[in-house]
Nucleic acid binder design. Structure first.
Lengths: 146, 146
DNA sequence: ATTTATGCAAAACTTTTGCATGGGA
DNA sequence: TCCCATGCAAAAGTTTTGCATAAAT
């Protein structure tokens, strides 16, 4: 069973068909999805799952920091990223909207320092860089020199 | 004139009443706003500015990485943060939805390393931590132990 | 003088709600 | 058995479009 499903269960939530299907869809998509994509793929997988459950589950997963909302450049519907281990990092190419993942970075140290200094408790983090990928690095940014 | 307005102009866009009002509202709000807040405050400041212009301008500012969309925990409408200097960092309290800003962090070094390693060009970044603030640190996370 | 941006208002979607039913624990 | 979660369908909002007009360069 997915560790994310186990966290749901550990938090006291029931393991339902809708929830496991939705989480499966997000994982199968590689951890980057749009609400519209989830809606579509869930419907294809199991048409008896209602749209409302998809939104309710996305909300629940967000509250648990299992996923986190982001705005992918290319889409109108909100995007979400999986946060295995409570964190995620990526680069968004502002030209072609490609997303480039990269591994960690030493933010644990910064998190610990912030916890100490600000008296907070941190559960996770999301780091996004914006720029141009290797294929687009010579192209102008969209919107520049209109 | 705001450096952000200057960037608009430098990129070839016209400096209009709508654009400067909208940017002013975002800056006056301290850099954290919701689309609904912008709509409301712009209407209060100058009722002749149409809603469509607000959304068009939010899109434009996002493409230029002058602002960046985020999801504030408390609201249903999408949020935006100002990115002075191309970057922004904050902590979101998952209990009370308070946002705690903090100053930089040494991410320039990481950005430079990523540019080298992945052959990308980076324009900015957004770093969000999720957790509990000093007032809420002893409270359970919402959604835990449902 | 040109060209871009605006305002208006309707249309298009996405997301949310309420309630009875079904499914986990 | 009990309570949570679901599905359905309608309602509520937010965001997007199209086009003629106004404004900025």
């Amino acid at each position: 069973m997915s560790p994310h499903l186990e966290r749901l269960k550990a938090a006291g939530y029931k393991l339902t068909k809708a929830r496991s299907t939705i989480l499966h869809v997000i994982e199968a998509a590689g951890g980057h999805v749009t609400s519209a994509e989830v809606l579509e793929k869930v419907a294809a997988l199991n048409p008896s799952i209602g749209r409302a459950s998809v939104f309710r589950t996305l909300d629940l997963l967000t509250r648990l920091v299992i996923i986190r909302p982001t705005y992918p450049g290319g889409s109108t519907t909100p995007g979400y990223v999986l946060m295995p281990g409570g964190h995620h990092h990526h680069i968004i190419c502002m030209v072609c909207n490609r997303i480039i993942e990269f591994d960690d970075c030493g933010l644990e140290g910064m998190a610990a320092a912030l916890e100490e200094r600000l008296h907070v408790r941190l559960e996770g983090h999301l780091l996004e860089f914006y720029g141009r990928c290797d294929r687009c690095r010579e192209l102008p940014l969209p919107g520049s020199e209109a």
